[in-house]
Design a protein around this nucleic acid. Structure first.
Length: 410
DNA sequence: TGTCCACAGGAAATACGGGGGT
DNA sequence: ACCCCCGTATTTCCTGTGGACA
């Protein structure tokens, strides 16, 4: 049979020269903590993040002599290695401390998902085994008390790594006040705080009384450049892929794309993984063209992901924009889109929101790179916001189809 | 130079919805 | 079951603004 033969052929082909040898190393989620650290270790051994590493290590050096270092604030965009570097170094430092007989432990409070002050402190309490999760019904004071109680008997060092602090979206003042003022005074523990944030100015609008107590030294993680990314990618390639079937220049190309767009190592690895999977399904070697394919596919994925996770109203606004702006770079006034939006709402059985809200949604779409907008003054005839699509060609129809599907199910 | 259009976007008011306490 | 409280989403209200026009 024809089909039979083709299946066999395909299997033999991919068995003969598989592109992916180990899927796990293309996806950090599938790696154990140890493996993740080992990957990092390999990269750091090639002088990546050298400056940051030596700064952090010397920052903690006093601790190994029994003195208290000041707090530390790590700044830098996502995927620049703040979390990874810090966790790896803390593990090492703990090792050294143990050898020197110095008591030291560290905890990682990950605030990747925004939460209010109470939740954050509650989560911290959970981390320290001081309390269980509460949704409500217990005062902040009580929660703070439990944390203090659980640390009352510990007089060694405690490094608290507060990841993405700026995600404490309510009463961040109270949160910091607790960590910086109340907690250190209440317990014998020698507390060292490490904050990470991707907003350079996260400390700008916190209460000045708290700020004056928050003495930190700062360390900025620059986005990775193309050379760094090549090293990072090559480490993955050697662990995960069959290097014989990778065309010359693939790693360089991926590194170039990634450093141009964001300098985010995680996204660079994602692009590598996607390219490899494309090669695998094609049953051939990994070519430069496939990198482009993967790049486009990832772009499409992120658009679709955005749509999937957006509230229906925002989807309706996007739908209206896609409908009334058929081709790129053709600007039309926002008021026209609003009319289209009212129409599509009727179609989807939603009730249209006010223009005020609508304009916020448009701004959001602009922020996420779906549309471009500019304010044009028509002098005597008022001011208009002009809007145009900036999504790549061909994305629009896919998006419209998914929105229709999402909203039809009401 | 002053006027005034037509919208942007800030601030405050209000509606909504979910979860806990009684 | 009912009410209350809180956080979030949306509306309402309002002030500000660039520049053609007179």
């Amino acid at each position: 049979m024809e089909l039979d033969r083709r299946i066999k052929e395909r299997i033999e082909k991919s068995a003969a020269s598989p592109v992916i040898l180990n899927h796990a190393f293309l996806d950090d989620e599938q790696l154990t903590r140890d493996e993740q650290l080992r990957v990092l270790q390999d990269i750091f051994e090639q002088n990546i993040r050298e400056k940051e590493i030596s700064t952090i290590v010397s920052h903690f050096a006093p601790m190994l002599r029994g003195q208290n270092p000041v707090h530390l604030s790590l700044l830098g965009k996502t995927g620049t290695g703040k979390t990874a570097t810090t966790l790896l170094l803390l593990a090492h430092i703990q090792q050294v401390a143990r050898e020197k007989g110095i008591e030291m432990r560290y905890e990682h409070l990950d605030l990747s998902f925004p939460r209010p002050c109470f939740r954050a402190i509650n989560d911290l309490a959970c981390l320290l085994n001081a309390s269980k999760r509460y949704v409500k019904g217990i005062s902040l004071d009580e929660m703070a008390g439990r944390i203090e109680e659980s640390l009352a008997g510990y007089d060694g060092f405690l490094v608290l790594f507060i990841d993405e602090v700026d995600h404490v979206n309510r009463d961040i003042d109270a949160f910091l006040k607790f960590l910086v003022r109340r907690l250190p005074q209440a317990i014998p523990t020698k507390l060292v705080l490490v904050f990470a944030s991707n907003r350079l100015d996260w400390r700008r609008d916190i209460d000045s009384r708290v700020k004056s107590f928050l003495k930190v030294s700062e360390l900025i993680f620059e986005p990775y450049n193309a050379v760094d990314l090549q090293v990072i990618l090559k480490a993955r390639v050697s662990k995960a892929l069959n290097q014989d079937v990778i065309e010359e220049g693939v790693v360089e190309k991926i590194a170039a794309y990634a450093s141009r767009d964001h300098g985010d190592a995680r996204k660079a690895v994602e692009l590598l993984a996607k390219s490899a999977r494309i090669a695998e399904t094609a049953g051939s070697s990994l070519t430069l063209g496939m990198v482009d394919q993967a790049y486009e596919a990832l772009e499409m994925d992120s658009y679709l992901e955005f749509v999937k996770t957006s509230p229906p109203q925002l989807q309706a606004v996007l739908y209206a924009a896609l409908e009334s702006l058929p081709n790129r770079d053709r600007y039309r006034p926002a008021a026209d889109i609003y009319r289209a939006y009212e129409r599509s709402c009727r179609g989807f059985g939603l009730c249209p929101l006010t223009q005020r809200r609508f304009s916020d949604f448009l701004n959001e779409l602009e922020l996420y790179g779906f549309i471009g907008a500019k304010n044009v003054s028509m002098g005597r005839y008022g001011r208009k916001k002009q809007v145009a699509l900036i999504t790549p060609d061909g994305v629009g129809e896919r998006l419209k189809a998914t929105i229709r599907m999402n909203l039809a199910g009401r």
